[in-house]
């Protein structure tokens, strides 16, 4: 049952592929973002499970730990989480503004709307309030 011993990787792969599929195949911009988030989360899992060592202790605040988990992946992934949050936030902000200027967040519809000339004026008051409520 050696494949079961790596079940964490299997889980990661499933989540990762789900996320990747969503990010590419979904036409709804929100779902794409969710896909990206899933993909990133899968990577967080991956890193964290690297650091895990069976029967090991936390390396800090315990004296004389013989086997200890590697803390570095956790630290790294903390950074990656922050990056992920920032990406998601920025993505959401973009989706909100796309919704405001196009009235849709569906890729297929957007593609047909993209080439139409936009009437800039009516929406302008929203733009000005961006980050300046």
């Amino acid at each position: 049952m050696s494949w079961l011993a790596h079940f964490n990787y299997w889980a990661v792969i499933v989540v990762m592929m789900t996320g990747l599929y969503m990010a590419i195949a979904q036409s709804d911009l929100m779902r794409k973002l969710i896909g990206i988030t899933l993909l990133q989360t899968a990577v967080f899992f991956l890193y964290i499970s690297f650091g895990f060592v069976r029967n090991a202790q936390v390396p800090i605040l315990t004296e004389g730990a013989e086997r200890y988990s590697n803390p570095l992946p956790h630290v790294l992934i903390l950074t990656a989480i922050v990056v992920g949050v920032a990406t998601t936030a920025l993505g959401l902000a973009l989706v909100v503004r796309i919704r405001e200027r196009y009235g849709s967040i569906d890729e297929a519809e957007l593609a047909s709307l993209a080439d139409e000339v936009e009437d800039l004026e009516p929406h302008h008051d929203f733009d000005d309030q961006d980050e300046h409520p």
Binding site: L20, A23, I36, L39, L90, G91, L94, V95
Partner: peptide, 11 residues
């Protein structure tokens, strides 16, 4: 364009 770049860039 920014959104598309964001998706692909994040991937």
């Amino acid at each position: 364009a920014a959104y598309r770049y964001l998706v692909l860039g994040s991937i």
